[in-house]
């Protein structure tokens, strides 16, 4: 699947979750830069899962630290 398409759609999805208006790049980290708590993570993951009709298990989430890694993982999961 097309990485650019995945990125564009996730860029839109993340907006309402980016409450601190952090300038997001591929290197932005969820825990460090965005300081999300576990509830926000769950809601954001659910939004992505629904958008692409995929599952991102906690095991897979544990490997994802940066925004770029998320886009890669979703692109892969879309098959």
């Amino acid at each position: 699947m097309d990485r650019d398409d995945t990125k564009n759609r996730i860029d839109t999805l993340i907006e309402p979750f980016n409450k601190k208006d952090v300038a997001i790049t591929e290197d932005t980290t969820f825990a460090g830069d965005l300081e999300w708590d576990s509830l926000t993570v769950m809601d954001f993951v659910a939004a992505i899962e629904d958008e692409f009709d995929i599952i991102i298990s906690m095991n897979q989430q544990a490997e994802i630290e940066t925004y770029g890694q998320l886009i890669d993982a979703v692109t892969r999961l879309r098959g």
Binding site: M42, D43, A46, E49, D50, D53, I54, I55, S57, M58, N59, Q60
Partner: peptide, 19 residues
């Protein structure tokens, strides 16, 4: 593989099972 869903949310649970 561990897949959590929103508390007591039947639809969220079903979506994950379906996928």
């Amino acid at each position: 593989e561990v897949v959590p869903f929103k508390h007591n949310d039947i639809e969220a649970m079903e979506k994950r099972l379906r996928r």
